[in-house]
């Protein structure tokens, strides 16, 4: 198990390095020279040449990639063109807001989705099951940006129940400010998780060991929640790990609509202001979060269900 975890972490690091290199190549391969893309349209040729030399853009591509990866690994992501602070510092100030938003969204998605899925599987083909099915399909398909905007219009502007802007100070205020964005990011996943848990629960409930447990006369509730759920929930953990990626995308909208100072809002503002070092840094931060989440999901899965580990090797 320990070896598996180590290998999994090594693989995660490799994927991350590859992603950093790819990102660098894409940026460099863009039409127009990178110096003007990074400096904006007002830069003179002399400034551009100095900038290109300073960044080592005249070197061969593999050398450039190695240098870039090296500087990223040593924590140097460049300087914020606007505030003149190191990009790492800016990222560190914004990251907690995005991480807490994603965590809250995950709690909502799993906390509502898993029980709903279980209940639907136990009462298969009932009215309740069909209603959950319809709800899941509908929630999955509505664009997250619309859920965020409509949620804000309804619960903040019209009803005045929840704050519309910012992240709040102090624990109670922060949680209060977190509700709407987290629901906007997580709600689409409630239905998805419910569907997934329902399908795998139905499969597990027809397994031999469950029939055995029934034959021993165990109570149905105990069978479902003690024995079946543990196996049935394993695919959900993987999906939630991958889901963090999609949630990062939705978090961009939630942060813009609710003016939360997270990574997504930082990235958006940096794009508008052509603050390229910050954009790249924010993309790297999001990528790191994503790789960490998928790695963690696989490790968790191996811990929950040892069969999973073997099937992936």
């Amino acid at each position: 198990m320990f070896g598996y975890i180590l290998r999994r972490i090594a693989l995660g690091c490799a994927v991350l390095l590859l992603a950093i290199s790819t990102l660098y190549v894409i940026v460099q391969a863009a039409p127009g020279d990178p110096a003007s893309a990074m400096l904006g349209p007002k830069a003179t040729p002399a400034i551009k040449a100095a900038f290109a030399e300073k960044l080592g853009l005249d070197q061969p591509m593999p050398v450039q990639i190695a240098r870039y990866v090296g500087s990223v690994l040593s924590g140097d992501l460049g300087t914020d063109l606007r505030s003149r602070r190191p990009v790492t510092e800016v990222l560190a100030a914004h990251a907690p807001y995005t991480v807490e938003l994603i965590l809250a969204a995950l709690v909502i998605a799993a906390g509502l989705g898993i029980p709903l899925g279980c209940a639907a599987a136990v009462r298969r083909n009932s009215f309740f099951d069909r209603a959950i099915g319809l709800l899941s399909v509908s929630l999955i398909s509505v664009p997250p940006v619309i859920i965020a905007i409509y949620g804000m219009l309804l619960f903040s502007a019209a009803l005045g129940w929840l704050p519309a802007i910012g992240a709040g100070e102090g624990l109670a205020e922060r949680l209060h400010h977190l509700i709407l964005p987290a629901v906007a990011v997580g709600i689409g996943w409630v239905g998805y998780i419910a569907r997934l848990v329902r399908a795998s629960m139905i499969e597990v409930l027809s397994a031999n060991y469950i029939r055995n447990a029934r034959a021993f006369g165990l109570a149905e509730g105990r069978i479902v929640y003690r024995y079946a759920l543990r196996t049935a929930v394993a695919p959900t953990v993987t999906v939630l790990g991958v889901g963090v990626g999609y949630m990062l995308g939705s978090a961009v909208f939630a942060e813009i609509v609710f003016a939360r100072p997270g990574i997504g809002k930082l990235m958006y503002d940096a794009v508008i202001l052509r603050n390229y070092p910050v954009t790249l840094g924010a993309v790297l931060a999001a990528t790191t979060l994503l790789v960490a989440a998928t790695t963690l999901a696989d490790i968790l899965n191996a811990l929950i269900d040892p069969r999973f580990k073997e099937s992936r090797e």
Partner: peptide, 22 residues
């Protein structure tokens, strides 16, 4: 797994990173 990461990479974030360059 590497493949899953590519697939899961949020197109929104990719768009913010690449869109302005092009």
């Amino acid at each position: 797994m590497g493949f899953d990461t590519v697939r899961a990479y949020p197109v929104i974030i990719l768009a913010l990173a690449i869109g302005p360059i092009f």
